[in-house]
Simulated scan of single mutants.
Amino acid sequence: MRMVLAARVLTALAITVVTALAAPVRAANPYAPAFTVNSSVVTEYDIDQRMKLLDALGANGDLRKTAIQQLTEDRVKLQAAKAIGITLPEGAIQSGIEEFATNRGLTADDVTEVLQVRGIDQQTMNDFVQSGLMWREVLGSRFRARAMPTDADLDQAMALQAKRPREMLYMAEIALPFAERSEAETVTLANQIYAQVSRGASFADLAQQYSRSGTAEQGGALPPVSASQLPSDFRSQVLLLRPGQTTRPMPISGGLALIKLLSIKQEPPDAKAVDTPEARDQLRKQLFSERIANFGQGYLQELLGDALIVQK
């Protein structure tokens, strides 16, 4: 019995030693596999690059956890597209980057500038955009007919919209243009300001000191805006905040900005909103986007549930 126990202890000790020795080797090799998704490899370098991209876009929370989740989802999205023979035409990724930039109020050149400043490979951005474009095609192929709203759906939605209170966002900004400092110095300053805000420093005071927007004198306070009027990617980022929270430094045209969500208020419906062909077309696109996103989330969970994910 003692010999068995001793053997177990020695085995456990050997495993501990091997693990301890292997850990530095893996850390020293950024291209070491971190995990596989249906045999598709995700490396430590992939994770590090996605974390940098998330940080550059102002993401909050555990960036490594989010990066791993996104990379896992990207792999199954690409595999689903491959399974039904979807390919992207030439120039689609660049068009996708331009669309991504527009949705954030940026230009493609702004995106390139941010990638260079943050040490993010262009391929990392290309992969990020590619998975989104391929997934869009997958969802369109599977769910377009079911997601498209009918005229009756639009009539009902227009009637509800005329009665629904508007969700108004009250925000403040600190805008830091690259032109005033070098890009690297601007990134450093933005991160320092974010750290101060996170420790409880006054956002309004920092805005008055550092922001180069016309709102600086008012502590960065912006005019209230309807959530539906914000660029889609920017809106989703801000709505992840609770009132009083601030985004990480995020790219804006020609620089970086920190956005603080001050409050969200419900205000009376817009009396000027009328049932016009333009309004119906906009609402049709909105309903279609919401529906296909819901279908897509359910389908993605199915794919993840069936996926073989192996940690290395």
Rank of each mutant, 00 (worst) to 15 (best):
L106R: 01
E137T: 11
Q49L: 09
D127A: 08
G119C: 10
D109I: 12
T72F: 07
L78M: 15
E73D: 14
P89L: 08
A81Y: 08
G119M: 09
A92E: 14
W135M: 06
V111K: 03
S39R: 13
I120K: 01
S40N: 11
S39E: 14
Q122E: 14
Q69G: 13
L53C: 06
S141Q: 12
D48K: 14
A101N: 01
V114N: 00
F128R: 08
G119W: 05
L78D: 15
T87C: 06
S39V: 07
A108Q: 13
S40Y: 10
G61M: 01
D46Q: 04
E137K: 11
K77M: 14
I120Q: 02
L63F: 00
Q116R: 11
A83C: 06
W135C: 05
S95E: 15
D121I: 00
R118G: 06
G85P: 14
A34Q: 03
L57D: 13
K77P: 13
F128I: 05
A101I: 08
R136P: 05
T124W: 04
F128M: 07
G58V: 02
R50T: 09
E137L: 14
R136S: 15
S131M: 03
V114K: 01
V138P: 06
V129P: 00
M134H: 05
N60T: 11
T36E: 05
T43H: 01
N60G: 07
G61W: 01
A67C: 07
A34R: 02
D74V: 02
Q94A: 08
V111D: 02
V114Y: 02
N126T: 14
N103E: 15
A101G: 00
Y45E: 03
V41H: 04
E137H: 12
R64L: 08
T124I: 08
K77G: 10
V138R: 03
M125G: 03
K65P: 03
M51A: 10
L53T: 07
A67M: 04
N60P: 00
K77C: 12
I120Y: 05
T112F: 12
A34P: 00
E90A: 10
L106C: 04
A108V: 01
Q69F: 12
T87I: 11
G132K: 07
A56I: 03
A92L: 12
D109N: 12
S40V: 15
T66C: 05
L71T: 05
G91I: 06
S131T: 12
Q69I: 11
D109G: 04
A81W: 07
G61E: 00
A59T: 03
L54G: 12
I84G: 08
